[in-house]
Structures are given as structure tokens and as C-alpha cells.
């Protein structure tokens, strides 16, 4: 693959399981870039969680998620954007939706999506305003 970034644009509706369309696209692109099998699965899971966050929290009128993939020489980037009401970082982190501890204090019920994304990807940035939210993610190739 050349050093010039290739761009792939995908728009999905906020229907159940449509995050799998984003995951399938990410999988094809990551395999094209020769990411390892485990890394491809990590990228799939990260984009699934990013889309689910948009589905659950954006309250957007158009009910769409816009995804931009950038294929760089040594990393895959994707941006997931909704045109919703925006969201606070603490909600994305889950701290606002966890409630009181259950049987185990570190077994939480909800809101671990961003924690998963951050653990699997190299960089995660969130920009949010009352006009929408964009989550930008980078995954570098190993070796």
C-alpha cells in the first residue's frame, strides 16, 4: 500500500445490528492492510462499541452514523460521527450510568464500551457538542 492515505466513507442507519456492517467494512480494510488476525478482531470490536455508543446516546434526528476510514501506510484510522445532542465524557466512560455497586464492586452492568475501545486501540479522541459527537480512533500496525 502506498504512503498516500486511502479514504472509505460509510453511512449506516441506527438499526439493530447495523454496527456489524461497520465491523465488516473495518475487517476488510484491516485485512487489506495486512493487520494480524487478532488485530482485525480488536478493530472490529472497537468500531462496534463506537457505533453502539452513538446508537444509544446520540438521540440524533437523522438516526444515522457516519464513518470515515483512513488507510495510512502504518495505521488505520476511523472517525465515527453522529449529529445528535452531544454527550458528556463521563457518560461515555460509564461513570454516570453505573449506579451503586452490585455484588462485586468491579463488575459493572453498563457503559464499558469506551473502556474496551481504549484498551484495544492506540489513540481515542472524543469531540462532542450540542450538534453531535465524533469519536476518532487510531490503530497502528505492529512489526
Amino acid at each position: 500500500m502506498s504512503d498516500i492515505a486511502k479514504r472509505v466513507i460509510l453511512t449506516i442507519p441506527m438499526y439493530p445490528d447495523m454496527e456489524l456492517a461497520a465491523a465488516k467494512t473495518a475487517s476488510v480494510l484491516a485485512e487489506l492492510m495486512d493487520f494480524g488476525e487478532g488485530e482485525v478482531e480488536e478493530i472490529q470490536l472497537a468500531i462496534i462499541e463506537t457505533c453502539i455508543n452513538a446508537f444509544e446516546h446520540s438521540k440524533s434526528d437523522d438516526q444515522e452514523v457516519h464513518i470515515e476510514f483512513l488507510l495510512m501506510a502504518d495505521e488505520l484510522q476511523f472517525k465515527v460521527t453522529d449529529r445528535g445532542v452531544g454527550i458528556s465524557t463521563d457518560t461515555l466512560d460509564g461513570s454516570r450510568v453505573l449506579g451503586s455497586p452490585s455484588v462485586h464492586t468491579d463488575l459493572r452492568k453498563r457503559g464499558r464500551g469506551l473502556q474496551i475501545i481504549r484498551s484495544l486501540m492506540d489513540e481515542v479522541d472524543i469531540e462532542s457538542s450540542p450538534n453531535g459527537t465524533t469519536v476518532s480512533v487510531k490503530k497502528k500496525k505492529r512489526g
Partner: peptide
């Protein structure tokens, strides 16, 4: 094939 965070929450339950 894939387990999302909601699936994990249900496993925790």
C-alpha cells in the same frame, strides 16, 4: 464470533 459490551454485561449478570 464477536461479543460486545452489552453481551459482556449480560454475562456479568
Amino acid at each position: 464470533t464477536l461479543i460486545n459490551s452489552i453481551g459482556i454485561s449480560i454475562l456479568i449478570e
